[in-house]
Computed example of a mutant assay.
Amino acid sequence: MSAVSSPSGKPPWLRAKAPQRAGSVQQLLRDLGLNTVCEEASCPNLGECFANGTATFLIMGPACTRACPYCDIDFTKRPLPLDPTEPLRVAKAVQRLGLRHAVITSVNRDDLPDGGASQFVACITEIRRRLPRTTIEVLIPDLCGNWQALEQILAARPTVLNHNTETVPRLYRRVRPQGNYERSLRLLELARQWDPGLYTKSGVMLGLGETAEEILQVMQDLRRVGCDILTLGQYLAPSPKHLPVERYVTPEEFDHWRQVGEELGFLQVVSSPLTRSSYHAEAVQELMRRYPKRGSPAESVLPS
């Protein structure tokens, strides 16, 4: 495996597609007053996804209560009270975009007793009411270890529950100072135990200084808690004020980790320099057809 160390400029494989025909999606989002993680976190795939008529909704934001030094979401503003109209507006956007698979994430809301679990539930409920055949993926924060709040989200029966591990344990203090590696693993483990029909998912950024042994250990830990789907992508510093990129990982190494993940038993491994948590997330529907789970919310909506 090889990598470009001490990067002074992005290698050619990190050139994302320029935005094309993205205006209609952006206008819809503005009309409905919605935020997306695509825009707030400066995702390199924004142009491609918006051009394809899809987006990942960012609820309860855009102000975050955590100051993770790798993330471009604003943490300097005071979080606003939850908007009771937001779930309906999200559902309307899903309907107008014609999404067969909706992805909802959020900022961290450590100021709320339930971490915002009730808003996730309301969004799932509104989408299901309008679009019962749309599968729903939620990318949730760690809820500060409030497992009753997690159970509340699981009771709403999302199709996929995603919670990103982000990096290796050794780097948590630097990369996720308000996070906890074991807590993130425990969240995924409990989700699997409480709802065996659920598909669980996690993502890891590479290029922050982790070793090959540490990457493998995280993958093994995620399989130990029953994680089904893994995404691996290159960390890109949003600005000079954020954590620097320690190395640019080659496409060949990403392919190596995809193969390792498949050998470990993940049902799906999406691994490439530009992979992000919700990149081509709709492909999970094919996964559900190949690996159906008894009692999954997808069981009654996906055509055989």
Rank of each mutant, 00 (worst) to 15 (best):
G209K: 09
P169R: 06
L161F: 05
W257H: 02
R247I: 01
M219P: 06
G261M: 06
G226M: 03
L274T: 11
Y235N: 11
M205A: 07
S239C: 09
V160F: 03
E252M: 09
K241I: 12
I215K: 09
L267W: 03
L198P: 11
R176C: 12
Y199A: 12
L190G: 13
L267I: 02
G265H: 04
V260G: 04
T231S: 03
T167N: 05
A155P: 07
R170T: 06
Q259D: 12
L187V: 15
S184H: 11
V218P: 05
L161E: 04
Q220Y: 00
H256G: 00
R192C: 12
K201I: 05
Y199I: 15
Y181R: 15
V218W: 00
V260A: 09
Y235H: 10
R157F: 00
H163C: 01
W194L: 15
R223Y: 03
E214L: 05
Y181V: 14
V160L: 09
Q268G: 01
E166G: 02
F266L: 02
L185T: 10
V245L: 11
T167Q: 04
L206T: 11
L274E: 10
L267S: 08
A156Y: 00
R224V: 09
L236S: 07
K201S: 06
E213T: 14
G233N: 07
V225W: 02
G203A: 13
R223S: 08
E263Y: 01
Q234E: 12
G203D: 05
Y248T: 09
R157V: 03
R224N: 14
V218K: 03
R173C: 03
H242L: 13
V225T: 08
E252N: 10
